[in-house]
Design a binder for these strands. Structure first.
Lengths: 358, 358
DNA sequence: TTGTATGCGTTATCAG
DNA sequence: CTGATAACGCATACAA
């Protein structure tokens, strides 16, 4: 009985079907350890056997099995990034730069989009963790507490991008959105503007946009100004929405019409400019308009758009570098990095023609 | 001695440090097999034990180890995509759509950029293969033969996107670039244009652009026309390059100046329109201009741009679906899918004012 | 420089 | 419905 069951070997489970390291070893007349070393620490193997191993591996078309390798070495060489959407170039540029940095260090990049839904982001993050990501980058800081808990408990290095908040309890690579919009607002106030309108992308689940609104309202408040209820318009960051907002603002009675329109990004601002022009108004004669991002187009249109330049590729690069340094042991945990934004003053802003100064 | 060596267990290699399934099993008073079943085939486990297992797993903060799982199940649940760059929205939109489809099917997506360098693309693909991707999507068909060899040998499902060529030996999800530009050229010829210029993005290592140029030249040839040597300008697909090209073309003597300018994409076309306007010319009065892609902006500018709409998200979605179906066994191998492009006739094209018809 | 032996964490097979 | 146990493919401590 026992002999019977001993000899009648259970049929082996189906493997990957691909050649395995063991076969390379056999055909090379060496042990599996030597083959492993030949690929991972070539200097520890004599040149002749090394070449022989490489040759048979090539002949067999051997590809190391990631799972086996990961299980034995406890490394997956995979990082992850979670952004709201790839349809916005501010994120696609960040991701592109990250991928480039990771690739230089032998890391592959998993990507997922949350569609601005924190719960979906949490799901995506957990899926990535189950795939064994060694580090994670995520846009913004609006994430469920459960996500931060998971990451901390697993001691997984992570950075938050595009935003920067002094004193944040995690690493952030980006800029202070509140300060940036405060600065833009200040600039317009100093030009003499007193009546403002704001055209902004949706602020739900978006800490960056929320910070921007805070920056604007706070700065207006400090100057004794405020935003009229119908002067804050929020909607999809599209050209069309910008055009529609312009029409709405242009239709206001002259005495409560804003003289300055602060837009959440260049797309909205360009739309607003178009809409104002269509309505027969001049920029900056009748309205000053500002954007954010500094798209290539923004400096080429007429009038050229006053906006704020953000180097998204730099953000991506710096964020990835923090994670890489962390994985290579160069630093203990990812550090925050503040990136500069620069105000680009162009033709779309000027002193209000009918400005009542004070 | 033996007892000694038996009891003094070799210090176990450092594990992941995270809780493992075995611990969940012990604390739940069941075997590892049952825990595994509880998560993978819950219906095969009694409700009580199942809940007990879930509870202890949660308490321990257990996260299944991807490597162990992959090794045992021979599945990684990871797909990959390789594109030239994320800086071009035609690719970022494709990738976004793919990721969405993959996520719906429990697949994570690895992403890499080749920078239009086939050798780099090969490296990226091989890296992904070593990470265990179960399927691969790649833009275009300009890839080293070695890559196709590897994929075929490993029987890895793959699709090529954005291009479609009847009779291709692999699955392609996209459109016929040659036919699309042939159609655009035909349209301009039919309007009465006889002198053409082409402003195109770089064609090296880019089968899509090469096909476009073939489409244009072939169609011109059939009409007994041809492109003057200095009427084909190739360079970076930026607004600035478009502007520069316009300046160059505008400076030609009137009798050999083109009346129609075919651009490789909307960015170039918008640049050309700007450049022509700056040079004091009218569109379409002096020049007809066409683009490709149909950006949101293209229909909003003045004059609105005649261009070709391509649904890049649909391409991404269809490509991912082919791969998913393949992995789920619904189809044997990925199938080609041709997506429609649509000509959007707008204000930037008209019959040439000084057209010498034949 | 090389080989031996074992562990990495999970799933799948089979017996019960 | 559950348990025991053998794979899965590779890397590494240790011995030689």
């Amino acid at each position: 009985m026992t002999e019977q069951s001993d000899s009648s070997v259970k049929r082996a489970r189906e493997g990957s079907g691909r050649a395995k390291l063991e076969e390379v070893a056999q055909r090379s007349g060496v042990s599996t350890a030597t083959v492993s070393r030949a690929f991972n620490t070539p200097e520890k193997v004599s040149p002749e056997t090394r070449e022989r191993i490489f040759a048979t591996a090539r002949a067999l078309g051997w590809v190391p099995n990631a799972a086996g390798r990961a299980l034995a070495s406890n490394r997956t060489h995979i990082a992850g990034v979670i952004i709201p959407t790839l349809d916005n170039e501010i994120f696609s540029h960040q991701v592109g730069a990250m991928q480039s940095v990771f690739a230089e260090h032998g890391l592959n990049l998993l990507i997922a989009c949350s569609n601005y839904d924190p719960e979906l982001g949490l799901q995506q993050a957990r899926a990535m963790i189950e795939r064994g990501v060694e580090a994670l980058a995520m846009a913004g800081e609006t994430h469920p507490a459960a996500l931060f808990d998971d990451l901390d408990r697993l001691a997984l290095p992570y950075v938050l991008t595009y935003a920067y908040r002094p004193g944040a309890p995690y690493a952030m690579v980006g800029f202070d959105n509140e300060a940036a919009f405060s600065r833009m607002t200040r600039y317009l106030i100093d030009l003499g503007h007193r009546r403002f309108a704001v055209v902004m992308q949706p602020n739900v689940n978006n800490d960056r946009v929320q910070a921007r609104l805070r920056g604007i309202e706070q700065t207006l408040g400090e100057a004794g100004l405020s935003l009229a209820p119908d002067a804050l318009i929020i909607g999809k960051a599209s050209l069309d929405f910008g055009i529609a907002c312009a029409a709405k603002l242009a239709a206001l009675p002259a005495d409560c019409r804003p003289t300055a329109i602060i837009c959440g990004n260049d797309t909205l601002a360009l739309g607003v400019q178009m809409g104002l022009t269509r309505a027969g108004f001049c920029v900056p004669g009748d309205f000053s308009v500002t954007g954010f991002d500094d798209l290539e187009l923004s400096s080429r249109v007429t009038p050229a758009l006053t906006t704020m330049f953000v180097d998204n590729k730099d953000i991506g690069r710096l964020a990835a570098e923090q994670l890489v340094h962390c994985l290579t042991g160069r630093i203990e945990k990812p550090q925050s990095r503040q990136v500069d934004v620069s105000l680009r003053l162009r033709e779309s802003t000027a002193a209000p023609s009918t400005g009542r100064l004070g």
